[in-house]
Design a protein around this nucleic acid. Structure first.
Lengths: 350, 350
DNA sequence: AGCCTCATCTATATCGTTACAAATTTTTCG
DNA sequence: CGAAAAATTTGTAACGATATAGATGAGGCT
């Protein structure tokens, strides 16, 4: 460390102390309020917590002073003492499909957390470690009061672990576990069902669907809705083989381009994501197949993107920001205390 | 509270105490290590900090034990004691254009923070409060050790405030302030310049550009690059009036549709964002104008989206994940201590 | 008056960590 | 060998909040 650095530090420390003495600019604590009101620190703490054993008049006076000097409790101190972190952790899985998936969800979550003491911390899940790692870590080291995660699986390890430990969480998507748990989900069964019906109604005779990786619960929902519709209508169908919504978009397009060149090609596609829908359009274009005639398409829309896509494509909307908002609200309710499980579940309708 | 709840709590508390006694499953602290090694808590703390006055052999022994029991320092306690939060705050401005802007940036940031003690906290900026509010709040209440923000303005209030208080930060975009400050920026001047040159080289005679809101510095960079190119080439030009990259995409398309119906319409567009580029394509389509012939287009690409768009569009790539990564790395360097300002600035080339 | 109750406020200890100063042990050397 | 120096370890206090138990004083009752 250089002399200059030392000098810097010395000056800063001194001015900070001076500021503290004069009460100007120093971060106010309970002690500051205690001095200002002539009360004890404990009393101030209780007063701010609206404890009934503190005289109403005192509570009001303390609150007034606290507001005047802009007091905010120190999160670290509160956390250390109480064990509550006031943190919600969003475990983020980086993946390409669905542009702005995370952004929408984050917007919804922050909106739900608005006005509360909770902060949103992004905990990345790097793909070279098992999926359960970040969750275990957050739980073991009490990094958050609640966990939000996505891409739920039928026998999701994370759900099991969190349930076993009675740790507050909410996930985007359902499981097939016996025990009910909090979730927010979009009705992908109905999405696929309605999408298929729409296509068939406009003349589709052989439908195809691009599914998410099979390990996710919503892949089964989509498949089930799809199968129900094609069986009800007795039309041909297939399920895209070798690619999923998580595949690189170029790979999806290459698959589609190949398939569209084959004799028994499907005449219609259901896409659970925007990028794969564009890949369908690109492949059709490259084959000079006309959209809406040679190739039909229903896409799931999660952004304003498809409003600008030509030719216009039939879409069904999923509101991810709302999903994030719901997740936030339900998680907060869960953290606040035990609640009937039905009040912690939400299914977004198509 | 019901009797059952009390019972639950009683049992839990008891089992936790038992666990603590046997050392199983309880969260390990310095004290745990101290007991295990027979050293004092202070010694353990120093040993883990690799203090040279602790015998090397001791340091190694302590580290071994710490690793064995999976010790992680308590963030709250560290934060309370040292004042360091180990938090990086990303101030997020919700806006539509550039799909997944935030996602890419977050991915880059988390990658940069990987392996460090830093957590990424999302601090939303709600549009009904002044832009500087979240920054002031973070600084005043020491909510983070460093701040990341985007959409920088020429005389950015946030930059001024943070500089005055010598608070570590990094912003996406530059200012026109006299004092140099840390930033990561994309060379939007060159983007617009090269985009214009490309268009002119393929026959463009009247260029148009859709700019971001004028208050952002990068709007000026884009404009400047654009103007330089059109003046050098002596071709016609205009700047889209009444809409910006921040306008709702439908409004952009409506504007473009109107403009393309007028006699003196531009024959080429430069779009600083993907949605607006799609709006150009949609308007051209709706007018039955052929892309690449009647209407030319160069778009800025920030995702894989345009790889699937047909007809193919000329694009220039901006790597937002890399921008996020750079911001993270440079901010960490700044937090670590004073550094030459040039080492805290990065300009991504087109 | 003396004792009790109630309302209100306060002292103490503690969460896990680290800065600082001091204590202890080991080594060096005249 | 013994004192001084060096190396190593330790105790204490503090960060800011809150849980717990206790103190204070006013008023009521016999």
């Amino acid at each position: 460390m250089s002399l200059e650095d030392l000098g810097e530090k010395g000056r800063r420390a001194k001015s900070e102390r001076a500021a503290a003495k004069s009460g100007v600019d120093a971060k106010p604590t309970l002690k500051t309020i205690a001095e200002l009101t002539g009360l004890a620190v404990t009393t101030v703490s209780h007063a701010l917590a609206d404890a009934p054993q503190i005289a109403l008049e005192t509570r009001q006076r303390v609150r007034k002073v606290a507001a005047d000097i802009g007091y905010l409790p120190d999160r670290a101190a509160q956390r250390l003492r109480t064990g509550r972190t006031n943190v919600i952790s969003l475990v983020l899985d980086p993946h390409e499909e669905i542009l702005g998936y995370a952004t929408s969800m984050i917007n919804g979550l922050t909106e739900a957390l608005r006005g509360t003491a909770y902060h949103l911390v992004i905990t990345p899940h790097f793909s070279d470690t098992p999926q359960i790692e970040p969750v275990r870590h957050i739980m073991r080291n009490r990094m958050a009061d609640g966990i939000v995660f996505t891409r739920t699986e039928p026998a999701d390890e994370r759900v099991k672990l969190l349930m076993e430990n009675n740790f507050p969480f909410i996930c985007h998507g359902r499981t097939e576990l016996a025990t009910a748990h909090p979730y927010v989900d979009y009705d992908n069964y109905s999405f696929a069902y309605q999408a298929a019906k729409k296509l068939i109604a406009t003349g589709a005779r052989k439908l195809s669907i691009i599914l998410p990786p099979e390990r996710f619960t919503f892949a089964h929902h989509l498949k089930h809705g799809f199968m129900t519709a094609v069986r009800e209508e007795g039309v041909g169908f297939e399920i895209a083989k070798g690619v999923t919504l998580d595949s690189k978009s170029d790979d999806i397009r290459d698959y589609l381009f190949r398939r569209m060149g084959e004799p028994e090609r499907p005449d219609s596609y259901i896409c659970g994501g925007e990028v794969s829908a564009l890949a369908v359009m690109a492949s059709a274009y490259d084959h000079r197949l006309e959209l809406g005639k040679d190739i039909r398409l229903v896409a799931k829309q999660t952004s304003g993107l498809f409003d600008q896509i030509r030719p216009r494509v039939e879409t069904i909307y999923e509101d991810l920001a709302e999903a994030g908002f719901l997740m936030g609200k339900l998680l907060l309710k869960r953290i606040a205390g035990p609640a009937p499980i039905q009040e912690l579940q939400a299914l977004q309708t198509v």
